[in-house]
Design a protein around this nucleic acid. Sequence first.
DNA 1: TAGGCCATCTGGTCCT
DNA 2: AGGACCAGATGGCCTA
Length: 450
Amino acid sequence: MILFAGKRVFTPSLAPSLLFSRVYLSPFYFLSEDDHSPTDASEDSVEVRVQPIRAHHPHRPPTPPTPPAHHKFHKFRKHYSALRQEYPPHTGAAPLSPGTRAAARNRRKPAEPRRLCHEAAPKRPHSPDPPRAAKAARTDGATDVSEKSAPSSPSPGAPPLLQHHPLLSSFRRPPMGAFPPLLIPPAWPPVTAQWGYPRVVNPLGWAGLTPGLTPALSPHHYPMLLPHPPSAGAHPAARAEVSVVRKAGKAPSKFLSPVAGAGRRRGRRGRQHAATRARRDDDDTIHALLQPSKQKQRNYKNMTRERRIEANARERNRVHTISAAFEKLRTSVPAYSHNQKLSKLSVLRIACSYILSLSRLAGHDYSAGGTEPSFSECVDLTTRTIQSKREARSAAAVCSAGSAVKHNSRPPDVCPVLLVVRLALLREGTDLPPRRAVRASPSRKGLVTP
DNA sequence: TAGGCCATCTGGTCCT
DNA sequence: AGGACCAGATGGCCTA
């Protein structure tokens, strides 16, 4: 659909594939040069003037005609996350070395604690209001949209943050369960829709723990789009582009919400249809970024709205890289079942006990205090960590009730990693002590903490 | 409905 | 000056 040229009106009733029209069209408000604003961005119809993407980005592969059937309209981030991992890895990143900036950062002092909201902020003359005050201001609806919104004019000579969206590269879904089935770990199949998007780790691990494989922020690697209102003679890539990759949860944005929270008057626990909710969130951003204005909105640092958006994109990319590394780590540690939902904290705890077990197996002692625990104790600790009440609860719930990951469900079983280790020990003539019965008791919580 | 977990935005600090 | 890193605030989703 994004290959359409000219003026088209998209409605959800056009075709099944156009159910995604808003999602996929939103990043591409390629406004014609004689009209700088979309005429209609309502939920039911979006009138846009799109230009052939290939005209702007001749190096992008052709876009498949339709998205796969498994895509969910309200789970746009699933597709976003998967496609992001399909993107070609960046090879320019240099590995860490003692003289690198990353190494030097380890010596940096921790930042000063943040001031409380009610405290004075002498260095913030332009936005002294705390977040709650900002929220109240938005709720009042007294904000003048024409004054609050930024003009979104590109910096002279600055390249656009994104010249093409990864959604254009392919609608294909990355291979699920592509890991060799007998490699445990890292052989945990991805848990689909655990957090709303598939936790698929690229086997090559561009966002893994290897610094050299982690791509630096590049407009070609990240789909955060900046508003670049078209201007006569401007580079085609600098046309209007707005961010639509918005997660459901987000903090109030003084920059991005000049429309007085049109989509934010809902309650804290309000239940909207996910698609509608996401669409309104996107509409907020689109409207905010496309609103014409006479003056650039700046914050206390005299930072323009565009630079704030750029910083947000970088921060998102950074956090996503961390999340991807966590996901890679999750696939590298044992779990209670294939469906076990591990939080980041759980992954860290399990990884600590797992490393301790492996280190003891190799004859080393990485335990705190050098207590030299036996391998059996370490394995037991790992098992109890995995099977702790909190960690195992989700797995049991998923397996018993049958949820969105039905196709991936199986009864809770013994941790395969520990089972493999145990079989190996049996082959060597040794064995582990019998596994304790898992019982959810408050006292156990302290035991399983590495 | 409360709590856990998460993503996102934002400003502060430090470094290049 | 600008980017990376960090922490606080906020709100959405999910589960018990």
